[in-house]
């Protein structure tokens, strides 16, 4: 159990490092899928099989595919990779990296000393989650529906192909 956790964790970290350092977006996304899958394993070990399934279905499936679709729509060419190479230079990443390392070491220090002790691994299965989701948190589910609606309406409005700018009097005729 423990070993699996550490291996999956290591895979997740390594593949995430690969995600943020790739020049080609598609490669990065493939690593992202790996990372999500490793995380799904972690979830499973932590006793959240339902979350593990969702992680693969929604994150690795839906979201990544959505991003790939958009990349395909944008039709990025080889120059894009060169562009990325030019952008990712040491003087760009040294500063942020130092900042992040400071933040990370603080968090590591805090988490390892800060009294969040205990063990994990007890299984909380789909049934429990379902009961709680449709029991006390039913209003939350309703609200997440509203959340998705806001996302859909917004994406619809923003993503629509732009109309040719025509004069307002001519607009009716064109339609």
């Amino acid at each position: 159990m423990q070993l699996t956790f550490y291996i999956a964790g290591a895979v997740a970290i390594i593949s995430t490092i690969m995600v943020i350092t790739r020049f080609n977006v598609i490669h990065a996304l493939l690593y992202l899928v790996v990372s999500f899958m490793a995380l799904a394993v972690v979830f499973f070990i932590l006793g959240a099989p339902f979350a593990a399934a969702l992680e693969i279905i929604i994150y690795a499936g839906a979201i990544v595919v959505l991003i790939i679709f958009v990349i395909m729509m944008l039709n990025l060419k080889e120059e894009a990779v060169d562009q990325e190479k030019k952008w990712l230079t040491p003087d760009v990443y040294v500063g942020p990296a130092i900042l992040t390392i400071i933040l990370l070491s603080e968090l590591i220090y805090i988490i390892s000393l800060g009294g969040a002790s205990g063990v994990v691994g007890q299984v909380v299965d789909v049934k429990d989650v379902g009961k709680s989701l449709y029991g006390p948190y039913i209003l939350g589910v309703e609200l997440s529906g509203m959340l998705l609606m806001a996302g859909i309406v917004g994406a619809y409005h923003l993503g629509r192909k732009k109309k040719k700018v025509v004069h307002r009097f001519l607009e009716k005729i064109e339609e």
């Binding site: 942020p96 900042l99 992040t100 400071i102 933040l103 603080e106 968090l107 805090i110």
Partner: peptide, 8 residues
């Protein structure tokens, strides 16, 4: 991020 570091 800097703000976060300061807070922590």
């Amino acid at each position: 991020v800097i703000g976060g570091i300061l807070l922590l």
